[in-house]
Design a protein around this nucleic acid. Structure first.
Lengths: 219, 219
DNA sequence: GAATTTATCTCGTCC
DNA sequence: GGACGAGGTAAATTC
């Protein structure tokens, strides 16, 4: 990664034409050749940029970055304050705790959506064939295994069915009921689930976020 | 603007939770307090960031950036390779020649949308009060001044009126007709233009792009 | 791999 | 100031 602080003007010609008048800016040249032009404000979006794949041709005080489709970013360097390079290496990348995990978390805190008196046994309840998303007991103490999905499809019903079959062999747990909970449940999945005695619950993510217990209401 | 090259791990907690494992990265702290975490690849989008307005609290090897709604970006610095600051000053900002310039370009190549036998005299035809977007001659040699806008409003009609008034004083050009061409022409602007004998033409940008002469089909 | 949906969207414009 | 839509959208997910 190369960082250049310089007084420069920049022109872009591609889908649109854009021009940046002469000013002091940060130029970033990444390992893949992409170039970002940042000012000292605004959002994370650069004032101007060239996305990879692209090629940087440097000649004197002019950089010409050419993109895959022929679009060009031209940088005229007037005065270079700093020009440094660093070897950063590969980045392991961002890990997002996505929606499914969050839904599971919200549900664990709001078991009352299934009925009063329910209590959580544990999240990610371990079994020999994988963890059950939520293991609970209802008001009268019946075990309930809940499979949480963002989109409820047949695969998810099959998965829950396998868990239920296994769990029902355990005399300490049996009988175990099943709930298939998802933001959206496909008709075929619903038919299959109900045919197998599995209750289907569609979840309203937004309202669950809004009516949570407060600990999750930070944002 | 402060640039830090450091081995760091980053956590974001806001609308979603996200984590960046330990790796060497570029940290940018802008004048408005916003923070960007960039790797040496990917797009112009940072791996993680905090948008202004926000507040950076630095304590030892930990940065905690808190956003307006309470969301936080936490950076754990393991090893700092470089830490430099620069005064960049205000940026004059991006000038997009975007659609208007492109429309002018397309129109110049497709004068037949006005009528057969038209020819272009020149684009950006200079006058004492500014350039006329397109100066043409129609099939019988009458001069036509065309004002091109993305959105046709009264201002544009006034502008064209001033040009026409000036151009019509030139015996080599007069009489000069006017055309007000825009993707969308506001009713008031249309009324004013037609009242002054200026022809209004609405342009279909997409179809003009689609039927261009090929030279413009680079992107 | 193409099409569709999402986004800590950003950014402008209109009302 | 909020609502609405486009974006050099980019990126993830579904088909």
């Amino acid at each position: 990664m190369r960082l250049v602080i310089a007084k420069c003007s920049v022109d872009y010609a591609g889908r649109l034409s854009a021009h940046l008048p002469l000013a002091m800016r940060l130029l970033i040249v990444k390992a893949d050749g992409s170039v970002l032009v940042h000012s000292d404000g605004g959002s994370y979006k650069p004032l101007n940029w060239m996305s990879p794949p692209c090629r940087l041709a440097e000649s004197g005080t002019e950089w010409v970055v050419t993109g895959k489709s022929g679009e060009t970013l031209t940088v005229h360097l007037e005065e270079i304050i700093s020009d440094t390079s660093f070897a950063l290496g590969e980045d392991p990348g961002l890990v997002k705790d996505g929606v499914e995990a969050h839904l599971q978390e919200l549900l664990a805190a709001q078991l009352h959506v299934f009925g009063v008196g329910w209590r959580l046994v544990r999240r990610e309840f371990p079994t020999a064939i994988g963890p059950v998303d939520l293991m609970c007991r209802d008001a009268v103490g019946i075990s309930v295994a809940i499979e949480v999905k963002r989109r409820g499809e047949i695969d998810g019903v099959e998965q829950l069915t396998r868990y239920l079959e296994l769990l029902n062999r355990d005399p300490l747990l049996a009988p175990v009921q099943g709930i298939f909970a998802a933001q959206e449940i496909r008709p075929q999945a619903r038919v299959l689930a109900e045919d197998r005695g599995i209750r289907c619950v569609t979840l309203d993510y937004e309202s669950m976020r809004g009516t949570d217990d407060g600990a999750l209401r930070l944002f």
